[in-house]
Amino acid sequence: MTSEDHAASAVVAQKIERRWAAISILIVVFLTAMAAVAGIHQATMPQARVEIIDPEKIHLSGEFVETNLGSAIEPDGSVTVRAVGQQYSFTPQCILVPVDTKVTFRATSADVVHGLLIQQTNVNTMLVPGYVSEQVARFSRVGDHLMPCQEFCSVGHEGMWAMVKVIDRNEFMSLAASKRRVSCVE
């Protein structure tokens, strides 16, 4: 091998290296941009706050006592839904929300890790004992959605689900006027 040959192949190697470096930088830029766009426009924002709560005392006081669960109207016109997941049911079993309204789901677990998923929507979060999960949603159509537990939580897991009923806003408001917490548990 002559020294000219060597120099020529070094030039080629450098070109290839540069090309691969460019490709990997493009991949990094693409993935970052994708995450940013998804985070801003596809409403897959991670929860803004980490909130902790004592899972052994949620039923005794605070916002997750059973009489405070269900849907509540906030002063700004939005609705907050509070729920508890436990082996093997959600309380309340049937959640009532108005259509075309900002709905904030706040839920936690009383025992093990559960999951809260509302079918046909992008509401999907884990319920971890000790933490409050919060997710904001807006339902554009009236109808019923299943809300199954999406984390295997032991042998009775298949029986753990609730119902989310999206109803007309006026109907919801008239129901909420008589009671301060609304649900569709019979």
């Binding site: 706050r49 909130e51 006081s61 006592v65 009489t67 405070n68 301060r180 917490r181």
Partner: peptide, 28 residues
Amino acid sequence: CNAAGFPVKSSATDIIQPEFKISGATLG
């Protein structure tokens, strides 16, 4: 602080307290 994940104690006002006694037994 929130983006960094510092936990905040959950607080909510206007809680509807039960009019009946809730089981407060500690089983541990």
